[in-house]
């Protein structure tokens, strides 16, 4: 608790973008998320780490309106409870779901185009964003006309992130971006996440690969059994003995 206060004091000058209060998610009798609260500040990379089944993905799904929840989720001061899932993109939240959510029967280009569904700022600016995505992921550029179901896992992850960028949101929710990727590829993806963050996009990241996530994150939380048991800056958490023992294996 003391640490949380300290943390709040240190960062209080940066405005809160996403605020979660007493969030609870249940699937029938199973309570996946049991009343958690935390804030994501503008420009941050926030990371939620925890074991499989700790409730991390449920939290992201609740934020993007895919599942019903109790408690309060506010984004830019707007309560999201009554906002339909598909309206969130216009508000600036983009969710890259678990398993990447690639439409395998669409081409790479079509997947990227779907990301621009809510944009009203003109084809020319959108065209520049395609170029930007291709710059970040040259491999996608080579495969624009290919059905995305035929891409490798790493390429699909790139496509998913690229598609999220196409919506020009202020905040990207990333669910397990390193899952199923080789360490080299995972490194590459995290490099790009950093890059995106430097352009001013706030990122809320859920990861099992705690080390990578905490290295990238300005703020981190540890989730266990649907509750947040620890939080702090990424660097603090990496140094924390409990985290080291349970999640970093040292």
């Amino acid at each position: 608790m003391a640490m949380e206060k300290l943390f709040e004091q240190r960062h209080s000058e940066v405005p809160v973008l996403l605020s979660i209060k007493n969030l609870a998610v249940s699937y029938g009798n199973i309570r996946a998320v049991r009343g958690i609260s935390f804030n994501v500040r503008q420009g941050q990379i926030a990371a939620l780490i925890g074991a499989n089944g700790a409730g991390k993905s449920s939290l992201l799904r609740a934020v993007s309106g895919m599942i019903p929840y109790e408690g309060e989720i506010c984004y830019k001061g707007i309560n999201l409870k009554d906002v339909a899932a598909h309206k969130l993109v216009s508000l600036g939240i983009t969710h890259v779901p678990e398993g990447r959510g690639i439409f395998g029967n669409l081409t790479v280009r079509e997947n990227l185009t779907l990301g621009t569904w809510c944009r009203r700022d003109g084809l020319e600016i959108i065209k520049k964003d395609y170029d930007h995505v291709v710059e970040l992921f040259p491999r996608l550029g080579e495969r624009m006309g290919q059905l995305s179901g035929t891409l490798s896992g790493g390429e699909q992850q790139m496509l998913a992130i690229g598609r999220a960028l196409m919506s020009r949101g202020d905040m990207i929710l990333l669910d397990e971006p390193s899952m199923g990727l080789s360490p080299v590829l995972a490194d590459e993806i995290f490099g790009i996440i950093d890059e995106i963050n430097k352009h001013g996009v706030t990122i809320l990241l859920v990861e099992q690969n705690a080390y990578m996530a905490l290295q990238a994150a300005g703020y981190g939380c540890v989730m266990e059994n649907g509750e947040i048991t620890l939080d702090g800056t990424g660097a603090e958490l990496i140094e924390n003995p409990r985290v080291r023992q349970a999640y970093l294996g040292v």
């Binding site: 309206k87 779901p97 569904w117």
Partner: peptide, 8 residues
């Protein structure tokens, strides 16, 4: 997944 693209 489609609503996550902002598609109604």
């Amino acid at each position: 997944t489609l609503p996550l693209m902002g598609v109604p």
